[in-house]
């Protein structure tokens, strides 16, 4: 039992690091690509063909990978004024219910997102030779991670290892 907990904690640490690196990398990549697009249009007078399609797809990838990260760190925006003042037992029950809903939505994103991504087959993007599925699969991957993270935290909540206050949503942005 103890070793299982350690294993989960270690996997959780590595997952969080990977998500952190992915978010920094994707944000940095967008920053670099948009500046390349600007320089090539205004300095070299030669518009890059991918200037709209590629950044938009990368932003979508950042959205779903980032959503998993924010689920892990409880940084999604929410309204916490009422739950915050609930009695501890009720609070725990409400937070458990929320985790189940989050996990359920993650499963839907993973399942139906997987079907949709697979339907793109080997189709290429219009302006650059990258498969559309490369970006489309970030949604089912993000959804699966959201479900996985929520289930783990639900187990932690029910076994008393996670405090319900750590699961409250971020109340400002």
């Amino acid at each position: 039992m103890a070793s299982l907990t350690t294993l989960i904690a270690r996997l959780d640490l590595w997952l969080t690091r990977a998500l952190d690196a992915a978010v920094i990398g994707l944000a940095g990549l967008l920053f670099v690509l948009l500046n390349i697009a600007v320089v090539s249009r205004f300095v070299f007078n030669n518009s890059v063909s991918w200037s709209e399609e590629l950044p938009a797809h990368i932003l979508a990838a950042l959205t779903f990978i980032g959503a998993a990260y924010l689920t892990r760190t409880s940084e999604h925006l929410g309204f916490d004024a009422v739950v915050r003042i609930l009695p501890p037992g009720v609070k725990r029950a409400v937070m458990a219910g929320n985790l189940i809903l989050i996990a359920g939505f993650g499963v839907l994103l993973a399942w139906y997102g997987g079907i949709a991504a697979a339907s793109f087959g080997s189709r290429m993007m219009i302006s650059v030779d990258l498969p559309m599925a490369l970006f489309r699969y970030t949604m089912p991957v993000g959804g699966a991670l959201i479900a996985l993270i929520s289930v783990t935290r639900l187990a932690g909540l029910l076994t008393g290892q996670v405090h319900p206050d750590d699961l409250l949503p971020e109340s400002d942005a």
Binding site: S47, S49, S51, E52, E53, I126, S127
Partner: peptide, 21 residues
């Protein structure tokens, strides 16, 4: 529009094709 064919067409005719939304 962002279309390789339309860009090549206008460049072949001597214009400077500029894809823009």
């Amino acid at each position: 529009p962002t279309s390789r064919q339309r860009v090549e067409m206008f460049n072949t005719l001597g214009a400077n094709a500029t894809p823009l939304s």
